[in-house]
Design a protein around this nucleic acid. Structure first.
Lengths: 89, 89
DNA sequence: AGAGGCGCTTCATTTTCTGTAGCATCGCCG
DNA sequence: CGGCGATGCTACAGAAAATGAAGCGCCTCT
C-alpha cells in the first residue's frame, strides 16, 4: 500500500484534487488553493513529482497517471459528499 | 473536503483497508495489521468512530457507512496497484 | 493463584507541520 | 536603465503530531 502511504500524507489528496480537470496552477496559486504553507507544499510536490503524479510544465499540473488517479478518486469524492451531508443531520 | 482531510491522516486509510470484507479485529490485532503504535491508532480510531466509519461491536469493524467507503475505495486501490507495478519498471 | 489477552495510557524522543519572512529571478513598462 | 510585481522556493523558530517501549487495570480461563 505504498500509494496509500503517499496519498495519506497531509495535503497530498488535496493537491491532487485542486489540480483536477487539467488545471495548471502556479506554486503560489496552489498554495492558496490547497491551504498549505510553502514548506509543506514543496515537500509534497517533490514526492508527487517523484511518483509521477504531478508534472511541471508551465506550472503544476497532473501527469497522465495523475489524471488516472483523479478518475479513480471519483467514487471516493461522491462518498465524501454523501458523508458530509449525512453528518449535517 | 472534510472527508479527505480525515482520511488524509496517517494510518486512516490503512485502518479502513485492514477492516475490509467485514473483518472484526481487536485493538491489538489492528495495531499489528496497520503497523501503528497504540497512541496513534487510538487517536485515529476515535476520529473514525466519530465519523461513523468504524464501529465497536465485539471488536473493531466498519460501520455500514464504512462499508460504502470501502466500495468507493476500490478504484483507488486498483490504481495504486497499477501505479506500484509501473514504478518497478 | 497464576497466566495470558485485552484496551488503552503515559512519557521521552523524534519527526513533521505551521506561519511568517524574505531571497533571487524573471518579464514588463516607462 | 530602474523599478514593480509576480514567480518558485528557502530559512527558521515554535507548535503539533507520531513513535516506540513500557506497563496498568481488567477480565477470563485453567
Amino acid at each position: 500500500m505504498a500509494a496509500l502511504d503517499l496519498l495519506g500524507r497531509r495535503g497530498a489528496l488535496r493537491i491532487v484534487w485542486e489540480l483536477r480537470e487539467a488545471r495548471v496552477l502556479t506554486f503560489r496559486a496552489l498554495q492558496a488553493a490547497a491551504e498549505l504553507p510553502p514548506g509543506t507544499l514543496n515537500t509534497r510536490l517533490a514526492e508527487l513529482r517523484a511518483a509521477d503524479i504531478v508534472a511541471v510544465d508551465g506550472g503544476y499540473r497532473l501527469s497522465s497517471r495523475g489524471a488516472d488517479l483523479i478518475i479513480a478518486l471519483w467514487p471516493l469524492l461522491r462518498w465524501s459528499e454523501d458523508w458530509a451531508s449525512a453528518l449535517e443531520t
